[in-house]
Nucleic acid binder design. Structure first.
Lengths: 95, 95
DNA sequence: CGAATCGTAACCCATTGCGTTACAGTCATC
DNA sequence: GATGACTGTAACGCAATGGGTTACGATTCG
């Protein structure tokens, strides 16, 4: 069940939300009451989905905030595993 | 399925991981290779679970990093909903 | 040409995770 | 009663990050 290479949520947002509705970045940012820069950063993978942004997205697109946050978690964990390759931690419990 | 009042992950960590093993905060922090202050902050709800910390916990306790991150998400979203009570967002899509 | 869009850089601000050091309080054992 | 272990936390410092504004160059379209 481990995702191979999870896309950043912004990519999903663009393809599944903006494009189907023919929304421009500017228009979507206005609707979300967020600066164009902030939305652009997310769409291009330069920023993550914050809890508040997840709420905004859920309200604007009729989705759940959890789904956005979960995508972000998958993305973050996948990259954390690879950036911090070797964490020396003492095993405290067997499984 | 919406959690009523999700506990912060630190509480779960303490009750489900430290206590069963009779671990002190100091000992657990040493095992996780984290400062005692950092672990204490998490246990007392003064800090969240970062991706890296989720990885450390998964390695030490044989759990999944996702489970810790998901708990954090539930906690964050629940509080975000209540702190930012009214986000004025334009609905862009019906369901 | 002129207008709209877009990505982004440059700044500024607030928050947050993490480390170290240090202090006060609790508790158990000597 | 003194000693040592454990705990929470304040005070600092550092780096990263989300978000806002302004502004510039590039692209696309009427």
């Amino acid at each position: 069940m481990k995702m191979h290479n999870p896309p950043h949520p912004g990519e999903v947002l663009r393809v599944l939300c903006l494009e189907p509705l023919g929304l421009t970045v500017t228009a979507a940012a206005r609707a979300l009451r967020v600066s164009r820069k902030t939305l652009s950063a997310i769409l291009n993978g330069r920023a993550g989905i914050s809890p508040e942004m997840a709420l905004r997205l859920s309200m604007a697109f009729g989705t759940t905030a959890e789904s956005w946050m979960n995508q972000q978690v998958q993305y973050d964990l996948w990259h954390a595993e690879r950036s911090v390759k070797k964490l020396r931690v003492t095993r405290l419990s067997a499984a």
